[in-house]
């Protein structure tokens, strides 16, 4: 019974991992740009949730969309202000640019909010419910289900709509897409906006049950990198499967070995997959 509880908690956390990793994989797969500020996007969204809640006393119904909109704007701004120019340089310039951005976001937040850990009240969405012997924390359940739905929604948007087809066309071949009349610039800006908005929602959802600190993005970014590599670059279903796997693996490791070692197992798993299936679980060879 305890094991079922552990797996469930891991699954719910994994769904949130899947959502913010989908944001990263969308940008990564479309433009082959690695956003090193991705974890800090999550962190910013967490602070948006915190500020909206403490200053305006508004609940998740308000702060989740607020985080999504603000992060969408941030993503588009970063694309037009930085990434578009950085892309004409070598790959090193992308690492430099996005990492510099990460430093600015992370330490500006540290300067404003100090290094203290903060969190939202645990029972924001109500008290723990016991169902069939499982303890269900409403905040985790809501976050997990919302994240799962949004990840699937993003996948449907990419594969079932004309807009998604245009996005994927630019990802596949920029020049060919231009030949058939798709302007790549707005599409790439949209990819940044969408990717960041997904990250924003995920951040606001994590904030429901996770500690908030300016440096929290660092470890979350590493998880996102692992999820994207495991799932295959640019693959949203891959990110979903890999995110859920990582969540459950982390949870089981914490239970069996100890919480300090959960990342050890995740990274060892990652290196193991690189040895045997480098294109990722669902990636194309």
């Amino acid at each position: 019974m305890i094991l079922a509880q552990v797996v469930l908690n891991g699954f719910l956390m994994g769904a949130v991992y899947a959502l913010f990793s989908s944001g990263l994989t969308l940008i990564w797969g479309m433009m082959n740009v690695v956003n090193f500020a991705h974890g800090d996007f999550v962190m910013i969204a967490m602070y948006v949730a915190f500020v909206v809640f403490t200053a305006l006393h508004l609940g998740p119904v308000f702060f989740v969309p607020a985080a999504a909109m603000l992060l969408f704007l941030l993503g588009v701004t970063v694309y037009f202000g930085l990434v578009r120019h950085v892309m004409r340089g070598p790959m090193l310039a992308q690492i430099l640019g996005t990492f510099g951005l990460a430093l600015v976001l992370r330490y500006a937040t540290l300067w404003i909010f100090t290094a203290n850990f903060v969190s939202l009240p645990e029972n924001l969405l109500g008290d723990v419910v016991t169902f069939a012997g499982l303890r269900l924390e409403p905040s985790r359940v809501a976050a997990g289900i919302a994240a799962l739905a949004l990840t699937i929604g993003l996948h449907l948007l990419l594969t079932r709509t004309a807009l998604g087809s245009r996005l994927l066309a630019v990802a596949e071949d920029r020049n060919a897409a231009m030949l058939v009349g798709i302007r790549p610039d707005p599409m790439q800006a949209l990819a940044w906006g969408l990717g960041a908005a997904c990250t924003g929602v995920a951040g606001a959802l994590i904030a429901l049950f996770f500690y908030i600190s300016p440096l929290v993005g660092e470890s979350l970014a590493l998880i996102a990198f692992v999820v994207v590599c495991l799932g295959g670059f640019g693959s949203v279903p891959g990110a979903l499967v890999a995110g859920l796997t990582i969540g459950v693996v982390e949870s089981l490791t914490s239970f069996w070995i100890g919480p300090a070692f959960k990342d050890v197992v995740v990274f060892v798993l990652f290196l193991g997959v690189l040895w045997f299936r480098p294109q990722g679980l669902l990636g194309k060879a």
Binding site: G97, L103, V104, W111
Partner: peptide
């Protein structure tokens, strides 16, 4: 003092360089 302003300045300069001269000083 842990205020982190150092890294904000440092990061901003790096962003500035990669934005206006992606090829580094050689460019």
């Amino acid at each position: 003092g842990g205020t982190g302003i150092t890294y904000v300045v440092y990061g901003a300069i790096i962003v500035f360089i990669s934005r206006f001269a992606p090829g580094g000083l050689a460019e």
